[in-house]
Design a protein around this nucleic acid. Structure first.
Lengths: 236, 236
DNA sequence: CGGTACGTTGAGTCATATCAACCATAGTGG
DNA sequence: CCACTATGGTTGATATGACTCAACGTACCG
């Protein structure tokens, strides 16, 4: 059987380039990344890096979806965020020079570039536009994390599940049939919401009886966004 | 009655300087901050800034303790972190050019310098050492936020309260009598842990019966740190 | 001497976790 | 081709942690 050709993306015409944190790099700088990067493909479930490890660089997602999570009590995962094409992950660990505080795993087959740490630190020092972009990114993530803390601390599981669905709609969108463009296991949903798998199952079927969503396997069809917003208490 | 003299701290010999994010600034740069900053005193309960507002600069704590919090459902506060002398707050909003995502209030009488936004952005652009320090600070906070999310999502209130006490010990220390060097209302404790005031009260008196702590008003005396660690599940 | 904010305790309720059983599906190896 | 196993999904029963509500005590302050 003929091996499928692997397309290594070129940074200079990488689709993710235009709106990413790299948007203010010169073409020379892009070329440096292109030369030094290492492209790799991952299958669903493959691990990119693990909590506690020292990482010698950071990752830029070219294709697929990656979940970034922490491992808590009894090995239960808490999903912190998802990374999509154009997103970078593990940069926090590089910049703060600490071991990774999260792990990352592919939830869809993915193509990912690995970029050596020195490129990030060098460019941050040399290119203040880039530096500001990275800063903005970090600050934005920090803002979201603070939001998340407040939500988990104050909202019910039901409210949070509705909110998570809305966030997923925002981040991944719906296809022409109103199906969510990301498929997660019930356990993964639970690990975002911060609850038990069974609770997610029960609440999803409640939402289904209330005609807010439809379920077919892991695919979730959104029927009534307005009501989800009401449930999630997003404006309060 | 004679007005008490206000001591405006000089940045160049400010005690908080040596180990702060400013440590790599030149004396010229420090002088600029010293010239442009605005010193102000706050009493317990005074607000430094409020969620949603645009802030034209950031704050550097000289004296006292500030709580940084978000306002959630029904106006319930979720305390995100505390700022002590040497810490800077509201810099996130300046760097990401977003409205403040938190509020800040003095929980002890405090002295605080306000530093215009352009100083932060200018120095970040011009001084890569400083830029890296700010980056490290942000990344560190992000790491802590992620930790917090996992804790709140997975631990019981009891575990979290024990952990909060340990964190307070770490951050503020104990006096010679083993009393915690920060005094909070029960409600404030609840707003860190993410629970109801009554729950904190009950658990504290449980800890007291178990000889882990002693209570006299708002002062908390730590009797058995090891057991608190065991309860909090910090190593799991 | 009220007034206000904080602290405490009890009782009742409810949301959510836990435990257990069972089904569906897909992949594996003999 | 058929057990065999693993993984994920579902449902029900039960337990309980934590919240809410309410009453009351306490302390400080003008």
């Amino acid at each position: 059987m003929k091996q499928k050709e692997i397309q290594i993306p070129f940074c200079n015409n990488c689709a993710v380039n235009t709106n990413s944190v790299f948007k203010h790099l010169s073409s020379d700088e892009i070329e440096i990344i292109n030369f030094e990067k290492d492209f790799k493909q991952y299958k669903r479930g493959d691990v990119l890096y693990s909590e506690g490890s020292r990482i010698s660089g950071f990752f830029c997602i070219n294709k697929g979806i990656i979940k970034v999570f922490k491992t808590g009590i009894d090995g239960k995962e808490q999903i912190i965020r998802f990374a999509r094409p154009g997103d970078i992950i593990a940069y926090r660990s590089v910049l703060s020079n600490e071991p990774a505080c999260t792990s990352a795993k592919a939830i869809e087959d993915a193509g990912v570039c690995f970029i050596p740490a020195h490129i990030l630190t060098d460019f941050v020092k040399e290119n203040s536009m880039f530096s500001m972009e990275v800063m903005k990114l970090t600050c934005h993530e920090l803002g979201e994390a603070n939001e998340y803390i407040t939500d988990i601390a104050q909202k019910t599981v039901r409210e949070r599940l509705a909110e998570v669905l809305l966030n997923l709609i925002n981040d991944f969108g719906l296809d022409s049939d109103n199906y969510l463009r990301i498929t997660l296991t019930r356990e993964e949903l639970a690990n975002i919401v911060g609850t038990a798998t069974e609770s997610v199952i029960r609440l999803l079927s409640e939402f289904k009886s209330d005609k807010l969503i439809e379920l077919s396997g892991r695919k979730i069809k959104i029927l009534n966004r307005k009501s989800l917003e009401k449930i999630s208490n997003v404006f309060s």
